[in-house]
Every structure is written in C-alpha cells, then in structure tokens.
Design a protein around this nucleic acid. Structure first.
Lengths: 201, 201
DNA sequence: CAGTATTTTGAACGCAGTTCAAACAGAAGG
DNA sequence: CCTTCTGTTTGAACTGCGTTCAAAATACTG
C-alpha cells in the first residue's frame, strides 16, 4: 500500500501545523522552537524536516489557515449589510479586521512577518489570499467612486486597505501609539467617514 | 584621570553605532551579527557588551539616529510651504516620509521592528521622537478640522500618520502589494485629498 | 618598581535550526 | 521462521548565534 505512507505524512503535517498554530498564537512566531514543536506533535525532531522544508514553511502553513479565518471574519461582518451605504460597509469590515487582529494578535502579525530574507518569492496562494481580502473592499469602493477608472479604483482599494492596516498595526502596539484599543475604532471611523463623504460639488 | 576611560568608552559606542548603521542599512537589522560588528569596529567581541547591554540596545541607538534623520527630512519638506493649503502640506510630508523609507528601507523598518519580547518598555526618547513626528502633522490637521476637540484631533493625527505609514509599509513590500513605488505617491494623494476635501455642508 | 585595581579579551557556554549515519520496521523470498 | 533488502524514522552531532566571565593585559598608586 503506497497510500499508507502518504497518509502518515499528511497526518504529521496536520499535527505540526496545529501545534505550531497553538504556540504561535500563545507566544508569537518568533518564539516557535523546533524541539517544542516535535514534543507537541509527538514526533522526532528530524521528522519535522520530512514533513516541511523548514520552520518557516510551517509558519507559512499556519498563515494559510489564518488567512482563511480572517477572510471568514471579514465577509461575515458584511454578510447581512447589503443595503447599508458603502462607507458603513467599509467601517464594518475594518472593525472586523481590527477585532480579528486584536483577538489573534500573534497569528495576525505572523501574516505580515514573512521572513524577508528567505528565498524572496511569496507563494502564489499567499498573494491570492491577499487579493481575496482586497476584493471584499472593491465593491464599496467602486460605489463610492464610480467615476474612477479601473486603475485608480484598484489603487484606492489598496490604499484603503493599507490605511486601515496601518491604523490597526500601530494602534494595537500600545507601547507605540499610546492609544487604548477602544479608540482604534473611532480612528478608523473618522478616516473612513471623511473619505466616504460626498464631494463638495 | 577619570575622563579618559569615559572618553574611550564613548568612542567605542560611537564606532559601534556607526558600524551597526552601515550593516543594518545594507543587510537589515535581522542580519546584524555581534562578531561582524566587533570586526568592523576593531574591538573584541566582549567589548560590545561593555558599551551596550546587548545587540538590541545598539539597534535602538541606530534607531535614534534614524529618527533624527527622518525628522529632518519631514520638516524640510514643508519648510518653505507655510502658505500652502493644509492638505498640500500633509501630502508633502507624506511624500518625504515615503522617499525616506524608500531610500533607507532597512533603517526605517528597524524603527518599527522593536524586538517585541525584550523587556517590553520602549525608552522615553523613542516615544518622544514619535511624538515629534506626530507634532508635524498636528498643525495642518487642526487647520483642516478646526471644529474637532483636542481629543478627536489627537486621534485624527495618529490615524493619519498610521494610514500613511500603512500605505508606505505595504506599498514598499513589492511582493505583497504588487504596486510599483511610483504609484505609492498617487495612493497617498488619493487618500489625503479625499480626507482633506471640504465637507458638503 | 611592586602591588593593586581596573579594563579588555576571546574561549567557552547554552541554545537555536538543520543534517545525516545509524537504527528500525515492513515486505519479499527462501 | 529467519534473512535480506528497502525505505522510514530517529536523535546525536554540526554549525552558528548572543552572551558571559575567568584570565590576561593594562593602568594606577605608594
């Protein structure tokens, strides 16, 4: 039976990402240790490297799961909000983004903590996951700025995502921003309401 | 002579930050190695730890210099622009921020890459340097939103800084954003012009 | 110049990620 | 049931890191 070995390896991969996810969520991606992981997954140290190229690959696998959860959270925030005005929908999604980042800080940080040195190329599925996130805000943006061409609209989508990301990023870094979490929502709303306000004719 | 030893230590500290700055600028803070640093500074490995607590403290010292240079660049961008409208001044400063980050990517990244685990507290001068950065944009913001109270204005200042920071951060990460650098300016302008537009009254 | 205090040094320690020779388990043949 | 062969699993060992600290070098003092 050839599938037996495959199945075993798949089970190991699964156990490893699960263990890694728990540890990253608790202590951050920087504190992930191969030896701890082997212990948690009940495998030998070397076994890790039969399932993944290196620790970074495991972090990337965890990132894949995190992206999925983040996508679910963001989409859920506007699932029942079709009839809300676009600015309101942007705020709902941004707040969902904020709350996800706040509740899963270490996992969320790992998403943007790609080990910059290693290799260089980001996997395709990673880019695709980001595009998916962008896609959520493309609709409200096109409603807000119907006159913009495809290129400008695309830039605006990225710009808005990046803005909210920046506010959440520095906002959650209490030590840096000095802003308590409950005020981050207000900052997002201030910026998005301002952006979404109708132009003076 | 007691000052002799002090002077020597001060010279060593200086040589170490300079060497560290060069290496960080070239290879990033994550690639800084104690042994390389000792070689560059022409001192023994252990000597590093007579001048600084650890490598992190040296990175922080480099961050101090980077903050000063960044402050100079941002202030210079609006030095002759007193009579420009506030939105225009915000855009000028943001572009200066972008260009500084683009030209000194590794040094700039190190500013926000504080080793989150170590200690926890950020030094006072670091917070003060950030406040200085914020202070630059407080003036245009108060002109744009004269009705906002002190608290809301403060939040808006932080929100705008964070937004621009986010746009620059993800924008410079070509692998993530897929946006060529010359378009980042357009994103910033789109967002700030939108925010600065007069309300429909 | 001897003796003492201070500073500087780099070998050594502990702890990482990763490798790979050896131990092992399973299948096939005798 | 044992032997051999094959592919898998293992964890000791290798390398490279930040950091320490006993010893060597240097500077001070009587």
């Amino acid at each position: 039976m050839a599938g037996k070995v495959e199945a075993r390896k798949a089970a190991l991969r699964e156990k490893l990402v699960e263990a890694a996810e728990i540890r990253i969520a608790r202590d951050g991606a920087g504190a992930l240790r191969a030896r701890d992981l082997a212990q948690d997954a009940g495998c030998a140290l070397g076994a890790i490297y039969t399932a993944y190229d290196d620790l970074n690959a495991i972090i990337m696998a965890v990132n894949g799961r995190t992206f999925r959860k983040l996508g679910v959270a963001v989409r859920a925030s506007v699932a029942e909000a079709d009839s809300e005005p676009p600015t309101r929908r942007l705020i709902l999604m941004s707040n969902a983004y904020l709350h996800f980042a706040d509740a899963n800080t270490n996992l969320w940080r790992a998403l943007f903590d790609l080990q910059m040195q290693s290799g260089g190329a980001v996997p395709d599925w990673y880019m695709a996951a980001l595009e998916d996130l962008f896609a959520n805000i493309a609709q409200p943006v096109s409603e807000l700025f119907p006159d913009k061409g495809a290129e400008d609209a695309g830039l605006m989508v990225r710009a808005l995502f990046s803005s909210v990301h920046g506010i959440v990023l520095l906002g959650l870094e209490r030590r840096i921003s000095g802003v308590p979490p409950e005020q981050i929502e207000r900052m997002i709303a201030q910026v998005l309401n301002q952006i979404g306000q109708p132009s003076e004719k």
